[in-house]
Design a protein around this nucleic acid. Structure first.
Lengths: 253, 253
DNA sequence: CCTCATCGTGTACAAAGTACACAATTGTAA
DNA sequence: TTACAATTGTGTACTTTGTACACGATGAGG
């Protein structure tokens, strides 16, 4: 939480640089070794956590803003990041609003009034990330999906909405490019899908179905060293992968 | 186009009542008898057309705002209306911006500066609609999909994006409730799907597939009067329909 | 070299998707 | 009245996709 002096400073700054009453909230899903986490922030004063977010610079495309915000929190670049919905009920408001309501008169407090929030979700490997708190928080950390704390405001809704969208997306878009090491085995990729869907999949059928997408290439040599039969290594065929990203998988009608 | 006096009046009004720098644009698809149209507006001064849009009242949920805007243009209520994306590149701006740029200094002109637009799309029966121009336009009319005029700004992009979303949506959501008369025949419903997809579908397979959704109930009596065999009449089973709307159709993984 | 867990491939069955045949119905024209 | 054209309802054969499971192959450890 900011001191009154820092708040005044921030408000003046924000008024100059940022679009008013617009915020971006990111649901950053982190994966590694069959685990799935979400990146959350916390202030020292409050018990509730909140999603990483930020504001849009006056001359900045909103996708760039989301990328920048993510970069500031995770250090990561070039990751899967997608807008999925706007949250804008009048009774919601950027939580800083409530937090700083009493410190400054509304005219001087940039956080006062109604905020719309544009929801983005991202998929990252949480081993690549060293979470960085922002200027409002003391803590930025990965939280397990089945150990979620209570969230501020409508961040619960935003989070659930992101998860639903992700699971739907899985049906007609490839994922995994920046979530897997360059080379990986089929069981490892399957684990990723199972984690997202929270559901067991058949080993053999998964393999055939994924291969049918045509976005993987198999290496000649299997990975040695495991306690059992060495599985083949695969890597993403980037051309087909990005093609599938824009085209989508399955027809329907 | 507004006169300078009306512009001043509007700007003062807007500043009091609307959220700043946020607009809503609606892609209203109109259907009837195998035709598909889009609702567009035009000013007398400009050759280019634009999508019906509007602004969000300070205490209004954004979905309500979209509903209200649609109601003002079409007179319709309770129709399928869905948010699909935010458009917010800095080089876009509500076209009124350009239109009125020179009439007032930026400080007094509410339209000055960058606008974000929230895209909604709607499906209606254009026979139910008597298009109403807004205060900026002289004309509000249905335009055929294969006779589209050039559109202002990024409205071309918004329109295309809406059409893509609609076609995708068709794979896992029921449609048609407010596009068909209360009772309708299977060929009529098929025509709707073919129009949206711009693609012929097999008569018999369409029937079986749609029936398998379980959202239709067949009436006892067929529709008489046609020049050929009388087809059965169907109507939507509203409970199953709304259920399918929230649940979605097909699994995937 | 035997055991065990795991991996790759194959196969049998079910469900869904596709293509087409045929009979039934209705208004119209001979 | 009757033959005809257009269209609808149902059925069926075929293909593709999805699901469940069996088998042999591989590699590490005892």
């Amino acid at each position: 939480m900011l001191s009154k002096e820092r708040l005044i400073e921030f408000s003046d700054d924000a008024r100059k640089n940022y679009l008013d009453h617009i915020s971006i909230d990111c649901v950053v899903f982190g994966f590694h070794g069959g685990q799935m986490k979400v990146l959350l922030l916390k202030t020292p004063d409050e018990e509730k956590w909140y999603l990483p977010g930020g504001f849009v610079l006056k001359q900045e495309p909103i996708d760039d803003a989301a990328t920048r915000i993510l970069q500031e929190r995770t250090g990561l670049d070039k990751i899967f990041l997608q807008q999925f919905r706007v949250f804008g009920d009048p009774d919601r408001s950027k939580f800083h609003n409530d937090l700083y309501r009493d410190m400054l008169p509304a005219g001087e407090n940039w956080f006062s009034g109604r905020f719309l929030s544009i929801g983005y979700y991202a998929l990252v490997d949480f081993f690549d990330v060293n979470p960085q708190p922002d200027q409002f928080s003391e803590l930025c950390a990965w939280r397990d999906l089945d150990d979620m704390p209570e969230l501020q405001l409508d961040h619960e809704l935003i989070f659930k909405s992101a998860l639903d969208t992700l699971r739907l997306q899985l049906n007609y878009q490839p994922i995994g490019y920046n979530l897997m090491p360059k080379d990986f085995t089929m069981p490892e990729l399957q684990k990723l899908y199972e984690t997202i869907l929270d559901k067991k999949l058949d080993r053999r059928n998964f393999q055939r179905r994924v291969l049918a997408f045509g976005i993987l290439t198999r290496a000649d040599k299997p990975r040695k060293g495991g306690a059992h039969k060495a599985p083949y290594l695969y890597s993403f065929d980037l051309e087909n992968y990005t093609n599938a990203l824009t085209e989508g998988f399955k027809g329907g009608w």
